[in-house]
């Protein structure tokens, strides 16, 4: 194996700034997409446990549709196909004038895709809280909405803190797909450094270390959160 080591490359201008820039994109994509996924996934999860069969069906259909098509294909559909299906004006706007098209599309695609996974977590959390709690809430006269707000959701979210965290980490890792539509995030940046300098080993090592560090930091934060929100006797769901 012949290779010219040069670890200094990582700290040299401009490459170090490329890495910083890449990490910024990665984190921004991940956080924005997670907000979408969390909100939409919660609504879908509630729908899937609803007493209304139509709402349940919509939730189920969404999950099946989004989790059975590869994320990369979904990304391409949003990026290349979706603007063509819009009315002419809107389509042109999306293609020509929409700010940061690659970034926006990635956030949207990643958020909608992950919502289907989050929906399942929220659903399993609500189901873990159980029919008994639902009945107890109803029995004192709480409406369905209030049963969710005061009883099912506060317990369900506590139960699924760990799965919600791993979903965030999944988004964080999946944000690397953005490089396929021209958003040079962290993985894309290291690939770019490799192409410019031929120091692939150093570049990929840098990305690897950064991804691992962020992952372990987030895990640590999650454990802290779990402790802070701990209620005596509460069981956490298995991952």
């Amino acid at each position: 194996m012949q290779y010219n080591w040069d670890w200094g490359i990582l700290f040299r201008d401009p490459y170090i700034w490329w890495l910083v820039d890449g990490l910024q994109w990665t984190l921004t994509i991940a956080i924005c997409a997670w907000v979408i996924a969390f909100c939409l996934g919660s609504i879908l999860g509630i729908m899937r446990t609803s007493i209304n069969p139509y709402l349940r069906f919509i939730g189920t259909a969404y999950v099946e549709l989004f989790r059975n098509v590869p994320l990369l294909v979904q990304l391409f559909l949003w990026y290349f196909v979706f603007p063509e299906l819009l009315p002419e004006e809107a389509g042109r706007w999306v293609k020509r004038e929409m700010p940061m098209p690659g970034f926006t599309t990635t956030v949207l695609a990643l958020g909608l895709y992950t919502a289907s996974r989050l929906c399942e977590q929220v659903r399993s959390g609500i189901e873990a809280v159980g029919i008994g709690q639902r009945n107890a809430g109803r029995a004192i006269g709480l409406s369905e909405t209030k049963v969710y707000i005061h009883i099912l959701l506060p317990n369900a979210y506590r139960i699924i803190i760990a799965p919600l965290t791993s979903e965030f980490l999944t988004i964080f890792k999946n944000s690397s797909l953005a490089l396929t539509i021209g958003v040079i995030e962290l993985t894309g940046m290291t690939r770019q450094i490799e192409e410019y300098t031929f120091q692939g080993f150093e570049a990929f090592t840098a990305a690897t270390v950064i991804y691992s560090l962020v992952t372990f930091t987030v895990m640590g934060f999650m454990l802290h959160l779990e402790k802070r929100l701990y209620v005596p006797g509460m069981i956490a769901a298995e991952k």
């Binding site: 980490l169 797909l177 993985t187 690939r191 080993f201 990929f204 991804y211 691992s212």
Partner: peptide
Amino acid sequence: NFFRSLPLILVIFWLYFLVPLILG
């Protein structure tokens, strides 16, 4: 835990780069 913390794309890039290097 290490592999689970990495994006698959990065692993693909790694091996695409490493395998020829190792085999020469």
